[in-house]
Structure formats: structure tokens, C-alpha cells
Design a protein around this nucleic acid. Structure first.
Lengths: 230, 230
DNA sequence: CCAAATCTTCACGAATCCCTGATCCAGTTA
DNA sequence: TAACTGGATCAGGGATTCGTGAAGATTTGG
């Protein structure tokens, strides 16, 4: 395997000098390299050329919105982990952000330690995903995308094709909340003409089969996600 | 008649007795042979002489760091699969580890089942990568790509060309589930001008000829795979 | 050029799965 | 507390999907 240009580099796109300085300080103290861009366009091109391990994006940016940057990157199949960073404690912003492919978000004011922890978590997930084809593990549930076998608490579990795809999708993006429509388009396929109720039924099936080990959490009014703490 | 088939030898280099005992228990329960070394130098020489199927390396080791062992092995062109294993939630360690050619990593505390799943995946990948011109064995079925002979339960079986190619492809990637389209493009070769149902018929033929020894599993809604457990 | 072997397609039955709609239940709001 | 909203649950009809036998197409070998 050929070496990547730089690893452990975090790209910070943030126009407030005070914040970017703080992030630089804490992240570099943890051994990350840090590159700061204060402008949206510059941030986008930096994201393209530097291949950072993760990107911290301010939502309110001059010249190009943070969500816009993320959307553009995703459109180019660039799946570098993105953490959104927003001042307004606005729920909609978050959901919208997560829907368009962000991996996490933080709200100002934040503790630098929190940011560092989230960056670490996000990078870890990405690295894990990149060492692809490994089994997905969450608690006592193990999902192997290659053999399509599932075990819960050590015992094999028989899932149908759709049930497997659903669980795999959730566990491959653990912690992330998906709306029913998202799940329909991402698991069922591009033109799912089925009602969103269908998702409920399959989720219920998976939960039944996994029993107490089921990691699927329902987020009322939003959708579902897979995580440890129910 | 050879003794019970051992899936391979796993070398565990770990100084905490509690952990190595647990790993030995779970891995041997799955049919792996296990060799434990509690010291870095001993681990390195064991890795050189025992030719294990995979190595589980603790990052924090006395006398020689786990990453150091991995680096040395790689320098000697030893590409035995390595799983790093670290207690500290230190991101940098991991990234560095993966950079120097680790195949996966796990963080303590881990579930033994998770480790077993990852070891299996890593070994499977390595076996596939190294698979060249040895007879393929799965249960009572032996497929020799060189002589193109097949035996099931000791008796020779006559397969046609396509039947053989199909079975060989499945067994060379045992456990992996292939869709019909995949099989058509990878076994038939030319961009599948034939209907996907053709695959079914040939699978049926192979199954008939191998009788109860047939390792071909059908994964409803997906495709087929070759493995021991039905 | 013919015959045998092999490959592919087709059709039907059986097994299984998926979707839907109705109903029940829990959390939320007026 | 009652009304309301969104989620859980259940069961049956409809739709897939797979296995199989047989027949047509193609290749191989003599």
C-alpha cells in the first residue's frame, strides 16, 4: 500500500480567528496536524487537495456556506469525515447537516476537549471503515457484510435480505440517525415506491430476531439509528 | 485421514495474562491454534519461525513495542496479517499502526467475540490474497485447480467445465456471498449475455453431483456462497 | 456431417418474503 | 384528563425468488 500524503491532518474552515486558534492549539497538542482556512472557497479547495483525516466546517462562512462545501464534497464522492460547527442552537440545521453527509456536529460555545474527542471518534470510525470488509461490531451484535452472517451474543441469527441490508446500513454508520425516507432510498434503492411504514415493520423484525442485543434505537419524530445505549 | 483440520495458528503477543487467556479460549474454541508470547522480542522471533496465519499485537509491550514488531516484519517482507490491540484510547497510535501496515485494530476493552470475528475476516482476506494453485479444501470436498479434479467424500466426481469453474470460484473465496451477476461476470467471463437463471441450473447440477457434501449455500435474495455451515 | 455432451432458456410449483392496512399502545400537548 | 400524534404490532394477500424437469440451442468429438 502506498503512503498517503499526510495523515492525521485536520482541516479547520472557520472565519473567527479566536476559535480557529483554540482548535489549532488543542488538536495539535493531541498530535494532529492542523490547517486553517478562513474562507469557504479556500476551504473547499484545501479539502480537495490536502486529503485531511477530518474536516471541521463552520456553518456560517463567507463566500461559501459550510453545508454547501459538504454537499459539494459528497457529490464528488469525497467521504472525508465532516464535523459541522454552528453557533445557532438550531435543531433544523443539525438534521439538515447530518442528512447531507456530515458525521457529527458541535455547537458553540464548545469545550475544546469535546471537539477533540469528537474528532477522534470520527477519525476512528473512518479508519475502521477504510480497513474495509471487516465485520461490523456493535456491542454483542456482529454483522459480516462479506459472508452476510449475523451473530447476536454469539449465536447465529437468520435475517432476510432486506433485514440484513437495513441492519448493515445502520451499523455501518453507527450513531447516525436516518429518516425513514433516507433508509428507503439508501437501503431499498433509488426508486422505492413503498410507504414509510414498511421500514417500521422491518425494524421490528430485526429487533425481534436480535432480542435484547438489538442496537436499533428509534428517534421519535425523526427515524432510527444503531448505537449501544438504547 | 488427517487429524482435525486446524484453521491456522494465531500468534498472540500480549503481556496481560487475563487477556491472552481469554483470547486463547475463544480462538481455540473456533478451531484456531493459539500461541501466546508475553514479550516483544519473543513475539518477533515466534512470528518469524512459526509462520502464523495472523498475529495479534499488543501496542504496549515490554522489551519491544508492538508497532516496532510490525515494522520489522514488514521490513522483512513478512506480510502476515496483523491486528493491533491497544488499551489507550489514543488515536495517533492507531493511525500510525495502520500506516505501517496493520490490517485492523481493536481497542480494549473488547469482546472476545469481536476479536474472533476480526481474526476470521483478516485470515480470510489473507488466504484469498495468497491463494494460488493449491488444492481447495472445504469439508469433504477437494477441488484441484491444476488437475481440475474434484473429489467429494473421497470419491471422484465428474464436473463439466462450467460446473468446475463455478465451484472453484466459490471455494476459492469461501464464505463470500456472490450475486448471480457477479458470478456471471467472474466465472462466465464475458459480459453476461446469458440470463441469471443459468447460474441456478449449474448450481443445481453441482449440488446433485456432490450430493450431501455440497458446500454451496443459497442466500435468498442475494446469491450463493460456499461454506461448511448450511 | 452426425451424434453426444453441454449449455441455456423456459415454465411451473413451492417456499418465502414484502407490503399494506387496521388496530393497539405510548408519549406529547392542549 | 382528553385528544392527538407517531410508533409498534399483527396477519393475510400478492409478489418474488428458488428449485427442478424438460426442451431447444450450441459446442465438441469422431
Amino acid at each position: 500500500m502506498s503512503p498517503d500524503p499526510v495523515k492525521g491532518l485536520i482541516l479547520v474552515v472557520e472565519d473567527e480567528r479566536a476559535i480557529s486558534d483554540l482548535l489549532r492549539l488543542y488538536l495539535s497538542r493531541e498530535g494532529f496536524g492542523v490547517q486553517v482556512e478562513s474562507d469557504g472557497l479556500a476551504g473547499l479547495s484545501a479539502a480537495r487537495t490536502l486529503h485531511p483525516a477530518a474536516i471541521i466546517l463552520d456553518v456560517g462562512l463567507p463566500s461559501m456556506d459550510g453545508t454547501e462545501i459538504c454537499r459539494k464534497l459528497r457529490a464528488e464522492s469525497n467521504w472525508t469525515p465532516v464535523l459541522f460547527c454552528t453557533a445557532r442552537d438550531d435543531e433544523v440545521d443539525r438534521v439538515v447537516g447530518l442528512e447531507l453527509g456530515a458525521d457529527d456536529y458541535i455547537t458553540k460555545p464548545f469545550s475544546p476537549r469535546e471537539v477533540v474527542a469528537r474528532v477522534k471518534a470520527v477519525v476512528r470510525r473512518a479508519v475502521q471503515a477504510a480497513s474495509s470488509e471487516g465485520p461490523l461490531v456493535l456491542g454483542e451484535v456482529i454483522v459480516d457484510p462479506v459472508t452476510r452472517r449475523v451473530t447476536a451474543g454469539g449465536s447465529p441469527v437468520q435475517l432476510t435480505a432486506t433485514e440484513f441490508d437495513l441492519l448493515e446500513h445502520l451499523m455501518a454508520n453507527q450513531g447516525r440517525v436516518f429518516s425513514r425516507d433516507q433508509l428507503l432510498s439508501e437501503v431499498w434503492g433509488y426508486a422505492a415506491i413503498v410507504g414509510t411504514r414498511t421500514v417500521d415493520v422491518h425494524v421490528a423484525q430485526v429487533r425481534t430476531k436480535l432480542g435484547d442485543y438489538s442496537p436499533i434505537r428509534t428517534v421519535r419524530g425523526v427515524g432510527y439509528s444503531a448505537e449501544l445505549e438504547p
